[in-house]
């Protein structure tokens, strides 16, 4: 699911393995969007990493091999020191099937960006499916979306050749189903413009979490986070500026 969520944004990237788990940071070719992922050690039934190692993987190749796994298979990932290949083993305990695949690794000269700690003006958590719906609907009208966070709510608006559209979500607490709540923490009102093409792409991570958190400040990149039980997938998107 994680590979599915990011494979259309970045093609080749390093899986950085260390004591804390498997991490990844990569920008898209246009340097407009960045994905940062962390799968923590606790999320694995077994995890061992003797030395920090970067596994340079072509995500399309990894995706091809992962398609050979059944949903409930146990997956084991293995790499030696200074590896040429990443080994994947899929096991089905019921009929004792063992599938073994190797994918070739590559040397990727990856520049890790320093992402400054930011006190965001607005932090909004909403159902991830709702966010996906809004992005898809508005992309049919325009290539850009304005996102405004005020104490009234969060408003997504766009204008294109055929007309215009806007969706406003007000803060609401759903006691029975907290994952359907919308919460808005506001330090100051925020208004930004983003490319919908990227937002729709990020929404491929919707299956990872029932909620998504948008962190916004004026004139800085948007942070979109899908939290998992033992890790996260975060996307950063540079804003559109000026008129």
């Amino acid at each position: 699911q994680v590979v599915d969520a990011i494979k259309d944004l970045v093609q080749d990237c390093n899986f950085d393995c260390n004591d804390s788990g498997i991490a990844l940071q990569a920008m898209d070719n246009s340097h407009v969007a960045l994905v940062a992922m962390h799968l923590k050690t606790e999320g694995f039934s077994q995890y061992r990493c003797d030395r920090n190692i970067a596994l340079g993987v072509n995500l399309a190749s990894l995706q091809k091999v992962l398609r050979a796994a059944q949903n409930e298979d146990l997956l084991t990932l293995k790499a030696e020191d200074a590896p040429d290949v990443l080994s994947l083993v899929f096991e089905n305990s019921e009929n004792d099937r063992i599938s073994e695949y190797d994918i070739k690794l590559m040397d990727i000269d990856q520049e890790h960006l320093g992402i400054p700690d930011t006190e965001y003006g607005a932090t909004v958590t909403l159902p991830s499916a709702e966010f996906q719906r809004i992005c898809r609907d508005l992309m049919l009208i325009s290539e850009s979306v304005g996102i405004e966070a005020t104490k009234e709510g969060i408003k997504f608006s766009c204008a294109g050749d055929i007309g215009s559209g806007a969706v406003t979500l007000r803060q609401n607490a759903n006691v029975d189903k907290p994952e359907l709540s919308t919460t808005i923490e506001l330090q100051e009102p925020v208004a930004l413009t983003f490319s919908l093409k990227y937002l729709v792409n990020f929404c491929k991570a919707t299956g990872l979490s029932s909620t998504v958190t948008l962190s916004l400040s004026n004139e800085v990149p948007l942070l979109i986070e899908y939290k998992m039980e033992h890790g996260f997938v975060r996307f950063y998107l540079a804003p559109k500026i000026g008129d």
Binding site: M27, L34, E111, H112, S195, Y236, A238, K240
Partner: peptide
């Protein structure tokens, strides 16, 4: 229309 910025203007190479 608005101009698309890039992340390089906001994030730094270490």
């Amino acid at each position: 229309g608005a101009r698309q910025s890039t992340l390089g203007s906001f994030f730094t190479l270490p």
